[in-house]
């Protein structure tokens, strides 16, 4: 091939300007390796272009150099940041915006969780207090009622028209003690339990009045505060308490007599 006409064909210029096809590029490079004239022709045209490129220069924005130094020489700047550097301004603004909303969202969620926990804590505290308050309230009303009963009992005990009959424990049951208050006028009978053994399950104490030597039912003894009002007894020589089956018996079980007091 005629080297001179090859050089003059315009292929060198095409090659340097990047206008050759892949096949043409390979061809020019092979030719340049073989023929120093071709290599020189390439270099000559490159330098012509380079000199031309250095006339009428326009300077880019100063920000480009700053950005590049930031992108290429900031340690830990990830690959992702570099590739997106072209749209740096917009992206960083968006990223900051997203980060900020993420922080706000995270803070809101944390506050919500804390608030929910506190709600539960305060609510259970409130529930406890309410229960305690109600318990105290009922305790208070019980105590008030008891107090009223005791007050009434005390008045009755101090009443001079009341006859006090102290019933002492029978042999073997000496720790038991109860008192009958018998209204001389109205013949009402009241019982005050000073100290009686706990009744076993299914059993109940029963009060008897001894009238003309015979026991007369004077009522079952229930849990009562202060004085228990019993049946009216017009006449009696003595009172006694026996342990009977629940609901009482028509006649007392004599060997289950706990206390007895004569008038």
């Amino acid at each position: 091939m005629d080297i001179k006409s090859y050089i003059e064909s315009g292929i060198i210029e095409s090659y340097v300007l990047g206008l050759t096809t892949t096949a043409e590029t390979a061809e020019v490079e092979a030719m340049a390796n073989e023929h120093s004239e071709i290599k020189q022709a390439i270099l000559d045209f490159e330098i012509l272009l380079e000199n031309q490129a250095n006339t009428d220069l326009i300077q880019p924005d100063a920000s480009v150099k700053t950005n590049l130094n930031k992108i290429l020489f900031t340690p830990n700047l990830s690959e992702k940041n570099i590739t997106s550097s072209l749209f740096n301004k917009v992206n960083t603004a968006a990223v900051h915006h997203i980060n900020l909303s993420r922080y706000i969202a995270a803070a809101a969620i944390i506050l919500l969780v804390i608030s929910t926990c506190l709600n539960f804590y305060f609510y259970s505290g409130y529930k406890n207090s309410k229960q305690q308050f109600e318990a105290l309230l009922s305790q208070q009303s019980t105590l008030q009622a008891n107090n009223a009963s005791y007050k009434q009992s005390l008045q009755m005990m101090e009443d001079s028209s009341m006859k006090h009959i102290e019933m002492k424990g029978t042999p073997g049951r000496e720790q038991n003690l109860a008192t009958v208050l018998w209204d001389k006028n109205s013949k009402d009978v009241y019982l005050y339990i000073n100290n009686m053994q706990q009744t076993p399950a299914g059993k109940q104490y029963q009060l008897w009045a001894i009238v003309n030597g015979k026991p007369v039912d004077a009522g079952m003894i229930n849990d009562c505060v202060g004085l228990c009002k019993m049946k009216k007894i017009n006449h009696a020589e003595a009172f006694a308490i026996t342990l009977e089956k629940e609901g009482g018996s028509p006649t007392p079980t004599m060997d289950e007599m706990y206390v007895m007091g004569k008038i």
């Binding site: 490129a53 480009v64 590049l68």
Partner: peptide, 24 residues
């Protein structure tokens, strides 16, 4: 940078785009 920017600008004919491209 100036000579490459001039090449880029002669193709894109837009300063802002040319600056972005120069960075790339």
């Amino acid at each position: 940078s100036a000579s490459l920017y001039t090449v880029i600008l002669s193709i894109l004919q837009d300063k802002e785009l040319a600056n972005d491209t120069l960075q790339e």
